[in-house]
Simulated scan of single mutants.
Amino acid sequence: MYRLIPALALLSTQAVAQAPTVSGTDGQNVLGTVPCTALAGDPVGDCPAELRRKDDGSATLAVQLKTGEVRRIYFEGGEATSSSSTSKMTTETRGDMLIIFIDPGEVYEIPKAAVATQ
């Protein structure tokens, strides 16, 4: 599992080091941060995150927003398929990054290698 950390580009932060897990997650998987914003117009910042992989190749990324809410984004075959939000979700690829937009203003920047099927 340690070999996944560089590919995930999830970076350890002091905030994550102080808390053993992101609220609402099981704490048994890769912890770090991902660039995100929860509100339209807010700057992108680092949000605590946990990536959980399943044996079938799917993955769930749980991200704790600055609003206190935990957003879950579900991946299959390396692509974002849905989220825990009922709002519209769209994705865009920019180089090696997968940018996820959830209306009205959530944005997540995820390295494609982090969610690629292994």
Rank of each mutant, 00 (worst) to 15 (best):
I99A: 02
Q118P: 10
Q18D: 10
F75L: 06
S85H: 08
P104I: 06
S12P: 08
T117G: 01
T81L: 06
T60L: 05
Q14E: 10
A9I: 02
I99V: 15
V22L: 04
P104F: 11
Q64V: 01
D42F: 06
Q18N: 14
Y74D: 14
L51D: 02
F75T: 01
K88C: 04
Q118L: 07
R52I: 13
I99N: 03
L8R: 02
G41S: 01
P104G: 01
A15Q: 15
I99L: 13
Y2C: 08
P111H: 03
S85L: 02
Q118H: 07
V44L: 08
T90D: 14
V63D: 01
Y74P: 02
S82N: 13
L61E: 03
I99K: 09
R71W: 13
T81G: 01
A59E: 11
T67A: 07
M97A: 11
T90W: 06
G32K: 02
G68S: 00
A17W: 06
S83I: 04
D46M: 12
D46H: 06
T86I: 08
I100R: 05
R72I: 02
T67L: 10
P111K: 06
D26W: 09
S87R: 15
V70M: 15
S83H: 05
K54E: 12
T37K: 15
T117V: 08
P104D: 11
L98I: 05
R53C: 00
G27C: 05
T86C: 06
S82G: 12
P6V: 09
D103C: 01
V22C: 11
A17G: 00
D103T: 12
A62L: 08
D42Q: 10
V63I: 07
N29L: 02
L51A: 10
A9E: 13
D56R: 03
K112L: 09
I110K: 03
D46I: 07
S85I: 02
G32Y: 02
L4Q: 09
L8H: 09
R94W: 12
L11D: 08
T33H: 12
M97N: 08
T25M: 10
I5S: 07
G27D: 11
G95M: 02
S82L: 02
D26M: 03
G57Y: 09
F101V: 00
R94C: 01
G78M: 13
V70E: 15
D96E: 15
A38D: 08
F101P: 00
Y74C: 03
T25R: 10
S87C: 11
A19R: 13
V63P: 02
P6F: 10
L8T: 11
S87M: 15
E79V: 15
A19K: 15
C47K: 10
D42R: 05
A49N: 02
V107K: 08
P6T: 04
A116E: 06
T86E: 10
T86F: 04
P35Y: 07
G95H: 06
K88D: 15
G45C: 04
M1I: 14
V107H: 00
D103S: 12
C36V: 07
P6Q: 10
P48E: 13
A19L: 11
R52Q: 14
N29M: 04
C36P: 04
P48I: 03
G78N: 05
E50V: 05
C36W: 12
V16P: 01
G41A: 12
V70Q: 14
M97C: 00
